[in-house]
Design a protein around this nucleic acid. Structure first.
Length: 460
RNA sequence: GGCUGGGUGGCAGAGUGGUCAUGCAGCGGAUUGCAAAUCCGUCUACGCCGGUUCGAUUCCGACCCUAGCCUCCA
């Protein structure tokens, strides 16, 4: 039985889909004006893991992850670059897809863009105005009237008076209440704009997700996810808009992933302490990034450091080493390993515990491979199968181990050649020469392992 | 100030009212020409102070420290 922690109720709940065997899930994606950083990578990886596991658990999942391709930052950046905003966004959408492919992120079922749902947004705003939840402000922007929505604050656990008492609420003459948020922004000269009943303008940030999710998933769906920082105000506002518009529950389960940190501080654009995915891919394999993220629970903060990535590399090396040289096997049906793996995943996606099962499989493979190779192969198939649910261990073991972090100066052919020379020395019991060659390779980041009849190698 | 979280062994990171997380590192052994890899064994824990309990790292309360949100942010 699957349990998911629901940010709306602050506790784990038994998950019951609205329609049996089907799940409709929406995740807030990127605003595309720059390269994705590790924080974005975490959202991608976490919800990719969720998507994969829900499917492995037998659900038919419709997964929507949007792209925000119009907003103030995009306009600003496009102006700085002196290019149309569409040129900017399409470039970074391509870059994002490249990063996702590297990280083995499965494409969502739908990937809608804000600019393609303007009509839907206008429709919602019109309904909100009709129902008295929205008004045109003194600057021609359209605002949501927070005081009209009874449940405002239920997701983030805030009360309106607490919010008003907040230190950072600025007085704003154009709104009735400083907490009211913008649904539609009137365009200034030269800004991208769409025609609307309130004049030329563009959507506010929150409305796009209400419109896109509604178009693709209906007015009521199962899971809505995103980074923890979106809980307030973004998701709170989404609930306010959608539920005021349709008059019933918008989403059953809200999921929020924790942040990536640098030196115990949130990684973010505003703090300028971020690493882009492509930065990190210079020194580490994508799978190492993925493992690093999955090794801790999705709601925990995750401190980024080279040590953590090195750790991930060592862990993956151990798993791939167990898989190396195994014949093809059959996945063990209903094994104790699989049951414990699923039990861990059913407990709010406890990937850390699920991964520990992978290591137990690896140990068992190593234990039995001498006496019972076919059993080892079956265990190996089981290991690959379970790891696959997390999007791990998808590579061929030998290739992964030889791949290393980055290509060393030595070519595979050179390495093989040196190994041949060393083999000759060993046949003649010329240990000094044999060790010299091994040290030489080690200095180049190549580690040798002498087996019964042959020598294998891997890059450190 | 309001609201959420978190403090676990050398490091990373799960979890539990009374037997093991797991990975890396350390130590001892097996194996090896020596290594590497692997296997077996093994050591360093649960912020602080009280309470509940036969027993608490795990439940309750206070305290200290720390992160996040309250402004764009994954």
């Amino acid at each position: 039985m699957l349990n998911i922690y629901n940010s709306l109720t602050n506790r784990k709940e038994v998950f019951i889909p609205i329609e049996p065997h089907k799940i409709r899930m929406y995740v807030c994606g990127m605003t595309v004006y720059d390269y994705c950083h590790l924080g974005h990578a975490r959202v991608m990886v976490v919800f990719d893991m969720v998507y994969r596991y829900l499917q492995a658990a037998g659900y038919q999942v419709t997964y929507v992850r949007n792209i925000t391709d119009i907003d103030d930052k995009i306009i600003k950046r496009a102006n700085e670059n002196g290019e149309p905003f569409q040129a900017l966004t399409s470039r970074f959408i391509d870059a994002m897809h490249e990063d996702e492919r590297a990280l083995k992120i499965l494409p969502p079922t739908h990937e809608p863009r804000a600019t393609q749902s303007i009509a839907g947004m206008i429709q919602i705003i019109e309904t909100l105005i009709e129902k008295g939840f929205a008004y045109v402000g003194r600057n021609q922007d359209v605002y949501y009237d927070v005081s009209q929505f009874e449940g405002y604050g239920k997701l983030s656990g805030r009360k309106l008076e607490d919010l008003r008492a907040g230190e950072r609420i600025a007085i704003d003459e154009v709104k009735d209440d400083p907490l009211d948020f913008v649904l539609w922004k009137a365009a200034k000269a030269g800004e991208p704009a769409w025609d609307s009943p309130w004049g030329n303008g563009r959507p506010g940030w929150h409305i796009e997700c209400s419109a896109m999710s509604m178009e693709l998933l209906g007015h009521h769906f199962d899971i809505h996810g995103g980074g923890h920082d979106l809980q307030f105000p973004h998701h709170e506002n989404e609930i306010a808009q959608s539920e005021a518009c349709h008059g019933h529950t918008y989403v059953n389960v809200w999921m929020h992933n924790g942040f990536i940190r640098i030196n115990d501080e949130k990684m973010s654009k505003s703090l300028n302490n971020f690493f882009t995915i492509r930065d990190v891919l210079q020194s580490y394999k994508a799978e190492e990034i993925r493992y690093f993220m999955l090794n801790s629970h999705y709601r925990s903060p995750l401190n980024y450091s080279n040590e953590s990535l090195d750790n991930a590399r060592a862990a993956l090396t151990r798993l791939y080493t167990a898989l190396r040289d195994l014949p093809v096997g059959t996945v063990l049906a209903r094994s104790d390993y699989e049951q414990r793996f699923r039990a861990a995943m059913d407990d709010d996606f406890n990937t850390s515990e699920a991964i520990s099962v992978l290591f137990e499989l690896a140990r068992e493979i190593n234990r039995v491979r001498q006496e019972d190779l076919s059993q080892a192969a079956n265990l190996g198939a089981t290991l690959k199968y379970l790891a696959g649910i997390l999007g791990l261990l998808d590579e061929e073991a030998e290739a992964w181990l030889r791949g290393g972090s980055q290509t060393t100066g030595l070519s595979d052919a050179t390495i093989d050649n040196l190994i041949r020379q060393r083999l000759e020395a060993r046949t003649n019991k010329n240990w000094a020469e044999s060790d010299r060659i091994r040290d030489e390779l080690k200095a180049q980041g190549v580690i040798l392992e002498d087996k019964a009849g042959h020598t294998t190698w891997r890059r450190a």
